[in-house]
Every structure is written in C-alpha cells, then in structure tokens.
Design a protein around this nucleic acid. Structure first.
Lengths: 212, 212
DNA sequence: CCGTTATTGAACTCATGGGTTCAAAATACT
DNA sequence: AGTATTTTGAACCCATGAGTTCAATAACGG
C-alpha cells in the first residue's frame, strides 16, 4: 500500500477529514484519532501540522466557510445580466441558493457555528463576516443595479436584500427540521417561487402584480 | 408517598440550573458538578432526580421550550382583536416576537438545539414540533381570520405566516451575530416596521399601499 | 546511494468528568 | 416524639481522550 506521502496533500486531507468528523460528531465528541483515521494519517501527523485540536477546528471551519461563500457568490451571477424574464432569473438564483443552503456541508457548518460560538467567539469574525454578510451585500448590489435599471423598486437595497434572503431561507429552517431532513428539489422550487412572488409583489416595478 | 421531596422541590431548581449551565457551556462542556452547584444542590441529588446527564439535558430543554412557546403564543394575542390600525397591531406583535426571539434563554435554546441535534435527534419532536411549528400555525390562524374579515389578502395563510415569521426573524440572525450581540429596542422596532411594511405591501388589502 | 525530513504505530502521561458508594445529617410525615 | 426518606459531602472507580515520546520507516533531495 503506497499512500501518497506528499506533505502538502496531507494538510488538506487533514482539514477535510477534520471538518467531516466535526460535522458528524460535534467539536467535543470528535476525537483526534478519528480525524486522523478519516484523513488516512497517523495521529502525530495531525499534531505535526496543526498545533492542537482548537486550531485544527478553526482552520477546518475557515476552509469550509470559504468554499461555502464562493459557491453562494457564484450563484448570484445570473443577476448581473438577467434576461427579459426577471422573475424567472430570481427564481433560478433563489433555487440555487436554497440548494447550497441545504447542502450537507453547509448545514454542518451552520450547526457547528451555532454550537461552538460560545467556546470560539472568534469564529464569528472568521466565518460570519466572510459569510452571510458579504453575500447579502453582494445581493444588495445586484438589487441596486436592477432598481437603477427600472426593473425593481427597491429604494433601500440593503433592506430588500436582507428580506429576500429571509424569505428564501426562513421557511427552510422549519421545513428541513433544522437541517436533519433533506428537502426535495420540487419543494425547493416551490419555496423559491413563493419567496420571489412575495418579493416581487413588494419590490417589483410599479405594474408589479402582473401574471405569473 | 407524597411527592414533595426533601425541603423544597429541588427538581425545578435542578432543571433551571441545568439549562443555565448548558446554555453557558454547551452540553459536552457542562459538568454535572457545576449544574449541581448552580442549583444549590449536591451532585448525588441530581442523579437522584434525573437518571443521567442525557435525560437531565432532555428535561431541561423541554422545560425551556415549553415556556418559550407559551410566551410566543401569548404575544400573538393582540391579533385576535386588532384595533382599527392593523399595521400598528402587526408591528406591536412583531416587535414583541422579536424581543422574545432575542431573549437570552431563547437564543441559548436555539443554539443548544442546533448543536446537539445530531446527538439527540429526539429533541426535534420534543422541542421543534412544540415550538416554531405551532407558533406559525397559530399565526396562520390569525391571518386566515383577518383575510376572512377583509383586512388582509392572504389566500394561503400558512405561506403568509411562514413568510411573515421569516421577514421578522431572518434579518435578526445576521444582525445579532447569531445571538451573541444584544440588539437594542430601537433596532428591533425598525426591523419589525420593515417586516410589516413588506408584509402588508404583499398581503395587505387591495388598496394596500396607501394605508398608514 | 546517503543524509534529512516527514510519517507512523504503539505505548504512555495526565486531566477531566460521568456515575456510584456510603455513612452522617437534615428534613418530612405520622 | 420516632421513623422513613432525602440530601449531602467526600471519596472513589473507571472510561475517554488530548497531547507526547520514541524508535522504526518511508519518502525525498542531492
């Protein structure tokens, strides 16, 4: 059995394995030996790369948050140049965001953040500020542009973005039983459609209530 | 024989202290000795009332969820007979809900639920079903009545309730930094006003946008 | 090839904390 | 009063797991 013994590869493997195990067990219940196994690595190797369990946790969370943020920002792309059917584009983006939001790693990240926020207050600056906040900001930018273009009526884009995100993710929490139940694609579409419907009724152009 | 054990009913003190410590430390980090101290009781007394740490946790969570639910349901009362100014009543109820939602014990309850949901899947049935779900249900009932009375236009009261709650609590999560920052009453009022504004624009009576 | 460095497994130390035992003391019930 | 029950403190047992040590070994660079 020749395992790849590159030094760089191991660090990434360790961080990935760490997040997987933390996600499955929670911080306190996860033992370093299990993380080492998950990463296909010996326990001392873990301590060779990351000094202790806490920093291991921090780095694993940071990495997971980074990828989550990038995925979400990418999902906003269609709003940069929405086609003639703004409603359809919003629904597409909304649905994409919902899919990312219900992703296993995403749910685990939120759960871990919630649970360890008291023990690791610095996680907020690492994760949240690089997370939801920047996402809402980007969304607000899009909405501002759309308002300037006369396709929306959102004089306060920050508030509109905040509420659009709320309309999307709010109903999820209850329905997904806090992330323990996987939600079918059809239901996600339905939630996105309802969210966009309400959003456009409130912030759509003047003649808003048209067809659907 | 008679159920009054020892001097007072220590059981309640234990459950209260347990929730306090769990809220402060998280499940795994909380040690039973500390709970005993918090409750002003000896450690064996704790085990005398609750068989082990897990059931102690479950009962503490259940008790906390009960009170939280009752408080929230009570907050909906004004909607049973709203005065002539529906907007004002909605804002009042919304603000009240937000205050309860940002309450320390409430935040701790949500945090603990999120964090231990994998270790205690049964908590969902104990807490969530007795929590947000029943609250949204009650809200939907109110909205249905208001629609029948011609004061709203919410043909799907369940969805309207779901979205109203989302508009209220969604913006909170980001702003309160997941419950770590206390939000001033003024900001809560602002959030409630914005939520009700959007809600009424979407679900208000036909001549909606005028009323103020 | 050979020295350097990273990795490995296994065993070890040590602190923490769940849960129990027990005899003494406090309390409640009659 | 007297008896049954609970509470209490302290000590105890024991499992778990973080973090370390170390000698053997695999990879890598020259």
């Amino acid at each position: 059995m020749v395992r790849s013994r590159g030094r760089i590869d191991k660090r990434q493997a360790i961080l990935d394995g760490a997040f997987t195990v933390f996600a499955r067990q929670g911080y306190a219940q996860a033992c370093v030996q299990e993380i080492a196994d998950e990463a296909g690595v010996a326990k001392p190797t873990v301590y060779n790369h990351l000094s202790d369990k806490a920093t291991l946790f921090r780095h694993a969370m940071q990495a997971a948050a980074q990828t989550a943020l990038h995925q979400r920002l990418a999902a906003l792309e269609p709003l940069a140049d929405p086609g003639p059917d703004l409603r359809a584009t919003l629904e597409q983006v909304g649905h994409h965001l919902l899919r990312l939001h219900t992703d296993d790693r995403s749910c685990a990240l939120r759960r871990l953040l919630y649970s360890e926020i008291t023990q690791f207050p610095d996680l907020l600056d690492i994760v949240t500020e690089s997370g939801p906040h920047r996402l809402t900001q980007a969304m607000a930018d899009r909405l501002a542009r759309l308002t300037l273009a006369g396709r929306l009526r959102a004089p306060d884009p920050d508030q509109a973005a905040e509420q659009f995100m709320a309309l999307l993710t709010g109903p999820l929490e209850a329905r997904s039983r806090m992330g323990t139940r996987q939600i079918g694609d059809a239901e996600l579409h339905e939630i996105a459609r309802a969210a966009v419907g309400t959003f456009l009724t409130a912030f759509g152009p003047a003649d808003g209530r048209t067809a659907d």
